[in-house]
Amino acid sequence: MSSTSSRSGAVAVIGRPNVGKSTLVNALVGAKISITSNRPQTTRHRLLGIATFPRGQLQLVDTPGIHGEQGKRSGKAMNRMMNRAARGALEGVDVALLVIEAGRWDNEDGLAYDALHDAGLPVVLVVNQVDKQKDKTALLPFITKVTEGRDFAAVHPLSALKRSGLEQLVATLMDLVPEAEPMYGEDEITDKSQRFLAGELVREQLMRRLGEELPYSTTVEVEKFEEEPSPKTGVMYRIDAVIWVEREGQKAIVIGKGGERLRDIGKHARQQMERLFGAKVFLQTWVRVREGWSDDEAALRALGYHD
């Protein structure tokens, strides 16, 4: 086997909500393609991150967190669709990353491991957020306990946020994916359109800036995404985004007093878009009511949700 041959393969990134899957994908890709917040349901869509290295290419499938029995019991169409998207991510992949939080292993982590093991995939355990672990001496006993009786191809403690431990993880993944030519060009970082990414960046600000429950009743639809020439950056984007809520009272909360909160959401989303697109962005946002959209599969599909 030639050591100079290129390697390329698909890697499913699986775990319960809020263990840092999207942060890990962004760190490996080297660009922000998956939105992040400290709330469950931040990632609602299956998204492909393309990470190209000297040895080859990894196609990283970032998924909604597997919501386990609690997610099934909630009965919401949104939760059912997200669970199907997460489990569907296992089809056609070469290796899986099971991402867990350092110092914590619960029933949902066990369910995720079982799903991966049953699929017959090599499973690499990523113990994320080791930078938050106050007692570093507890890490090794924790890993020993988690790996006992379970079959992992490798174990990698790391911090996706601090970008530490990533090189060793990439080396392991390159050994596990097959010899093949890259599927995408070196400059490609995701299979999603800029229009999709723009909507996600608005939704990220909703997740970060609204109270406990409200973000789960909101979604974003990009109604206009137009490209214009710009003398300064070469190109400029005009984007119209609608924030959908489920009740009239929620609309007032998103807009805020005198429209202050909506302006704040728009400003921060626009700054993130300009950073990602490398161009000037003119963003306009509106808030509209669509009752029961999150529990209506037809409405979810119309708003761009797929399983």
Score class of each variant (00 low, 15 high):
Phe142Gly: 08
Lys251Thr: 01
Asp114Lys: 14
Val19Gly: 01
Leu262Arg: 03
Ala31Lys: 07
Asp295Ala: 03
Val289Trp: 00
Val61Cys: 06
Gly103Glu: 07
Lys267Met: 12
Ala89Asn: 02
Gly15Met: 01
Ala298Trp: 11
Thr42Asp: 07
Met273Leu: 13
Leu139Ala: 02
Asn26Trp: 03
Asn18Tyr: 06
Gln194Tyr: 14
Ile33Ala: 05
Gln250Cys: 00
Asp151Glu: 15
Gly88Trp: 06
Ala102Val: 05
Gly234Cys: 14
Thr285Ala: 12
Ala85Arg: 03
Phe282Leu: 14
Thr63Gln: 01
Thr219Val: 08
Ser217Gly: 13
Val222Lys: 02
Gly185Ser: 14
Lys132Tyr: 13
Gly68Glu: 01
Val11Thr: 09
Ala96Thr: 06
Arg261Ile: 00
Arg275Lys: 15
Ser8Arg: 09
Ala86Gln: 05
Arg247Leu: 00
Pro54Thr: 13
Val19Arg: 01
Gln41Arg: 10
Gly149Phe: 03
Ser217Leu: 11
Leu90Cys: 07
Glu248Trp: 00
Leu206Gln: 03
Val29Cys: 08
Ala119Gly: 09
Gln129Ile: 12
Asn128Trp: 07
Arg203Leu: 06
Ser164Trp: 09
Ser74Ile: 12
Leu210Ser: 04
Ala302Met: 12
Leu169Asp: 00
Met207Pro: 02
Arg87Tyr: 12
Gln272Pro: 11
Lys145Asp: 07
Asp240His: 12
Tyr237Arg: 15
His156Ser: 06
Val287Ala: 05
Ser230Glu: 11
Met236Asn: 11
Trp293His: 02
Leu176Tyr: 08
Ser230Pro: 06
Lys280Arg: 15
Ala171Leu: 13
Leu111Met: 15
Leu303Glu: 08
Ala51Arg: 01
Arg44Leu: 07
His156Asp: 10
Ser6Asn: 14
Gln250Pro: 04
His306Lys: 12
Phe53Leu: 11
Asp62Arg: 09
Lys134Pro: 03
Arg39Leu: 05
Glu221Asn: 14
Leu139Glu: 00
Gly20Met: 03
Thr172Arg: 09
Arg301Gly: 12
Ala102Ser: 11
Gln168Ala: 15
Leu47Lys: 13
Asn26Met: 11
Thr285Met: 14
Phe277Val: 09
Met236Pro: 04
Gly68Val: 02
Gly249His: 10
Asp62Ser: 08
